[in-house]
Computed example of a mutant assay.
Amino acid sequence: MIKAGIIGGAGYTGGEMLRILVNHPQVEIAFVNSSSNAGNLISDVHTDLFGDTDLRFTDQISQDIDVLFLCVGHGDAKKFLEANPIDERIKIIDLSQDFRLNRNSSIENRQFVYGLPELNKDKIQSARNIANPGCFATCIQLGLLPLASKGLLQSEVHINATTGSTGAGQSLSKTSHFSWRNNNLSIYKAFEHQHLNEIGESLVQANGAPLPLGGTGGGLLTFIPQRGDFTRGILAAMYIESDLTEEQAYELYENYYAGHSFTHVSRKNIDLKQVVNTNKCLVHLEKHGNKLFIISIIDNLLKGASGQAVQNMNLMFGLEETAGLKLKAANF
């Protein structure tokens, strides 16, 4: 059994991590750290786990583990590791953005590998530290990687993507209150979302040569993020000028994802409910004149966060990639 520890277990990603690991056949949860909930039953905070576990939160950290999940806010993972030396034998999977970019991918003697299995599966299998991708980044990259792998990202990519309210985290803010979010739709960080940088690095890697992507607010990627009035999931709608026929595009995508367990190419139109509560990404393609239209959908808390983190753990420890992640969509 793999012994796992969780830092930041009271938030949305921590709760999803617990929901998966409580039922993972090859994992034992050693501790769940939450300084604000120390001593409380986990099921008192994550009430969906009532009857599944009698574990309590702790403010202690044990080194008697094999893997440590950092389910903390952006900036807090780096601070945690600086303040709490973790034994080198313990593998770390960080769900924040602290180590995703090449320039920030190391701390002291730890080097982090970008944890997108559809791009870095071989590297992940031999890695000791993983930087889990962002939710928007995962959804958008999985819609574009096959094109990048063949050098076919040579014109502007227009991206409109809508995320559920859980993408904003559990802490209350003006835009996460039910009364504001319900029956509402809004745009934020247009052209400048922070995930553009990690998307750009992955596409350049897949392309095998530099691309004029720029950083936030420039280059080939035009990204308009939206807040949706639903709880979970991301739908990204993208288009790019392309000489590929629709059949050629499908062959490219189907061949690229043939060896990947969770990303599937659908020749029928797709909707968000097909992936909510799963670790799947579905991709659908259409050709309209000289434009290739791409739809990519994921659950932001699973394939966009905790599910992908467990997928990475499975690869790191030589387990079946789908272990603990065979989840049916909440379709109704």
Rank of each mutant, 00 (worst) to 15 (best):
I2M: 13
I2D: 04
I2Q: 08
A4S: 15
I7M: 04
G9S: 15
G11D: 07
T13Q: 01
M17I: 12
M17R: 05
M17W: 05
L21K: 04
L21A: 14
N23I: 03
Q26A: 10
V27T: 02
E28A: 10
I29V: 15
A30R: 15
S34L: 12
S34C: 14
S36I: 05
S36F: 06
A38Y: 10
L41E: 15
D44N: 15
D44R: 15
D44P: 09
H46N: 05
T47Y: 02
T47P: 10
R56P: 07
Q60C: 15
S62R: 08
Q63K: 13
I65E: 03
F69Y: 15
H74E: 10
G75W: 04
K78C: 07
K78S: 04
K79V: 07
K79Q: 14
A83I: 12
P85T: 08
L95F: 11
Q97S: 10
R100H: 09
L101C: 07
N104W: 01
S105A: 11
I107L: 12
E108F: 04
F112M: 02
V113F: 05
G115T: 07
L116I: 14
L119N: 10
K121A: 14
D122Q: 12
I124H: 04
I124W: 10
Q125H: 03
S126P: 00
S126H: 06
I130M: 08
C135L: 13
I140H: 05
L142P: 02
G143E: 10
P146K: 10
K150S: 11
L152D: 04
E156I: 12
V157D: 12
V157C: 12
I159K: 14
G164K: 09
G167F: 08
G169S: 10
S171R: 12
S173H: 11
K174V: 11
T175P: 00
S176I: 01
S179C: 07
S179W: 04
S179K: 07
R181I: 07
H193K: 07
H193Y: 14
Q194M: 09
Q194F: 11
E201N: 08
S202A: 15
N207A: 12
L211S: 02
G214R: 14
G214D: 05
G214Q: 02
G217D: 08
G218I: 02
G219A: 00
G219D: 01
T222E: 12
I224E: 14
P225V: 00
P225K: 00
D229C: 11
F230W: 06
F230R: 04
G233R: 05
I234F: 07
I234E: 00
I234R: 10
Y239E: 14
D243C: 08
E247A: 03
Q248F: 10
Y250L: 08
Y253R: 08
G259E: 04
F262T: 01
H264Y: 03
R267E: 06
K268E: 13
I270A: 03
D271I: 02
L272F: 05
V275T: 12
V276E: 00
N277H: 08
T278E: 00
N279H: 06
V283E: 01
G289P: 00
I295L: 14
I298S: 02
K303L: 05
G304K: 02
A305R: 11
S306A: 14
S306E: 00
A309G: 03
Q311E: 13
N312F: 01
M316Y: 01
L319T: 01
L327S: 03
A329N: 07
